[in-house]
Amino acid sequence: MERLSVLKTYKLYIGGAFPRTESGRYYELKNGKGENIANVCLASRKDFRNAVVAARKASGGWSERSHFNRSQILYRIAEMMETRRAQFIEELISQGISKSKAEVEVDLSVDRLVYYAGWCDKYTQVLSSVNPVSSPHFNFSTVEPMGVISVISDVKNGLLDLVSVVAPIIAGGNTVVVLAAEQYPLSAITFAEVLNSSDVPGGVVNILTGKRSELLKHMASHMDVNAIAYSGTSGEERKLIEIESVENLKRSCYIDENWNDKGAQGLKFIEMFQEVKTTWHPIENIGGATSSY
């Protein structure tokens, strides 16, 4: 007799745990043949709210971690992803993506994580400046993470879109709440499992599956979210997000990239989610001694 396989339940990823949606709702994910392959959590606005709470809680610790440590953790994510390469490919295929495309996507996702792992302890240097003010003050500008970021993932790829946005955001010390593409929830949740096993503190990345039409407004309007990154949105959706973002002057960043392009990565995706802070302090000069040499 053939062994009965054990099916995986795909749940949400909030605060380092995998809860079911509080709403109890789900949607059926079908494969190319129209067969149901999973019942996927249909996250509610309350799930989103809980995720923001988790992200805010994680924000202080993550942003204050040494950049070197963040770098190590991002590299660890890449390592863990690589070990699950086959699983990701299989899942992408089951979600309707061709094998060759799936392979490229997973490889590129891993490489992108490695790329941003390398940026963690470098971007601050590149983006900072010492500003030669005319008064006797030492003045420097540096960057700090914005805080909690909502991410509405693009829908072009099953895994790569999500990884390409999340990696630079967390590399820069932010925490995120991501809404995965509606048609690609499986690889998003498996990615959550990778995160969960790669030293990423709970709450740094929170992943929801569900309907963009339901959650978009709340992701844009939440007063405790500092910025929102969105991709693959229609003009109407974009306008809605921008209007809903106004109330707390949420930074809204529309990202339109073809992430399959190898060059679709870079410092600007980190910088997008950084605030510039300028610090002043007096410089005492006694007796006119100079540093002549």
Binding site: N131, P132, V133, S134, S135, H137, N139, S141, M146, N226, N248, L249, R251, E275, V276, K277, T278, T279, W280, H281, P282
Partner: peptide, 29 residues
């Protein structure tokens, strides 16, 4: 959480020094 922090001084400005806020104080420098 502020775009400009003055330590042991206050309300100093200079053309070379970026100025601008976090949160509802606006964006851009």
């Amino acid at each position: 959480k502020a775009g400009v922090v003055w330590a042991n001084t206050y309300n100093r400005f200079d053309p070379v020094s970026p100025f601008g806020g976090y949160k509802e104080s606006g964006f851009g420098r």
